[in-house]
Design a protein around this nucleic acid. Structure first.
Ligand code: MN
Ligand code: MN
Ligand code: ZN
Ligand code: ZN
Lengths: 138, 138
DNA sequence: AGCTTGCACAAGAATCATTATCATCTAAAA
DNA sequence: TTTTAGATGATAATGATTCTTGTGCAAGCT
């Protein structure tokens, strides 16, 4: 709570209860949430909060580098508060998304590929997660 | 044309003019096209072809591994006929998408990461493409 | 304290990519 | 040629995301 207000002030984000509420659903957890999911999580605290407001707030947070939008799923975006570079694994069975903290070595160090200048790189892995694999073995 | 019919027969895909038309927009070029783009390209040959038909055909081709759907852009899918593993660079200035034929070495060889079993991996690079960079220098 | 101005928010409408429905048509097997 | 499962086109529906607008609050000024 204190930390969140601090983060806002550092970035000149006006502190409002809704913004704090949205940030609390993502920070400091490592969850990857849909907009619907975030909305559902703040609903108890703000019964009237609009879905459009959640979208607007997330857009602001994205610009201010407080959250990251990932598109590991084809159908909708996920949001997370981890903004340091890392990759993602998406289980095609249960739909769960996991962080992948691997250094995909040769590429990240380069600034250029085929003459294109790289600002960002994101690796998406797809497969069956460890939890789903365990269930199968029974 | 002959090659395309051959590809269809190999995979038990019923040969229809519309399917051949859609495949011709992607094969053997290396383009990355939106559904709208594919629809526009086949329109002259099939003035009545429905956008829904293009979606249906692409879905079939995807299942049969004739095309690949990529989601390097957040707003819509792109389709290509290159189905061998490779990655993509997306220019955030002009929106163009390029192939990236780099082996992201350590990860692809592994079958597992953190206990998850990997079936697929895709790297997305974002930045300014060589063509846009040239324009800036003037 | 009252006034002004600019955001922030909620509610709902609008947009736009993608899917689903369904009646009609057709490729290809017999 | 006949038959029939499957393909197509027209259209509606869905669902995520964005836009619009009226209201309300908050900080700065008089
Ligand atoms: Mn993550
Ligand atoms: Mn490609
Ligand atoms: Zn799983
Ligand atoms: Zn470019």
């Amino acid at each position: 709570m204190e930390r969140i207000i601090e983060l806002f002030k550092e970035r000149n984000i006006r502190v409002t209860p809704q913004r704090v509420g949205v940030m609390q659903t993502l920070y400091p957890s490592q969850e990857h949430l849909t907009v619907e999911g975030i909305h559902a999580k703040v609903k108890p605290q703000f019964p009237n909060i609009s879905l459009a407001t959640v979208y607007t707030i997330l857009e602001l947070f994205k610009e201010k580098k407080l959250v990251r939008e990932i598109r590991v799923r084809f159908d909708r975006s996920l949001y997370e508060s981890r903004v340091d570079p890392h990759h993602h694994f998406h289980c095609t069975q249960c739909g769960q998304t996991y962080d992948v903290d691997i250094d995909l070595c040769p590429t990240l160090k380069k600034q250029r590929i085929d003459g294109h200048s790289i600002n960002d790189f994101h690796g998406y892995f797809y497969g069956i997660c460890r939890s789903c694999r365990k269930e199968k073995q029974c």
